[in-house]
């Protein structure tokens, strides 16, 4: 367990678990661990689905040509930071 998630991280963690129907609780996602492959073990289809859920909830679209995509998806922490910066709702 890990209680070091910020409030927005908690919200994004809940979105990940709900959108991908994961069998863990949002609190179990380590904010610093990779989401992709090792770590949370998401595959590229999961990431796509997550990107759609993010568009719906936060009103902005992750772009394929953004140079920092690799780092955005690298952890809950960095994804949350990006959402905090880019959200329009």
């Amino acid at each position: 367990m890990n209680n070091s998630q910020s409030p927005l991280e908690q919200e994004v963690a809940a979105l990940i678990v709900q959108a991908l129907n994961l069998e863990i609780t949002p609190q179990e996602i380590d904010p610093a661990a990779p989401l992709y492959h090792e770590g949370l073990g998401l595959d590229s289809i999961d990431m796509l689905e997550l990107s759609l859920a993010i568009s719906k909830t936060y009103g902005f679209q992750l772009k394929s040509d953004a140079p920092d995509n690799a780092s955005i998806f690298s952890s809950l922490q960095s994804l949350t930071r990006h959402i905090g910066k880019s959200r329009v709702k």
Partner: peptide, 11 residues
């Protein structure tokens, strides 16, 4: 096999 690739396909 990369998030970018599928984001591009989505677009």
């Amino acid at each position: 096999g990369s998030p970018d690739g599928l984001l591009r396909a989505r677009e």
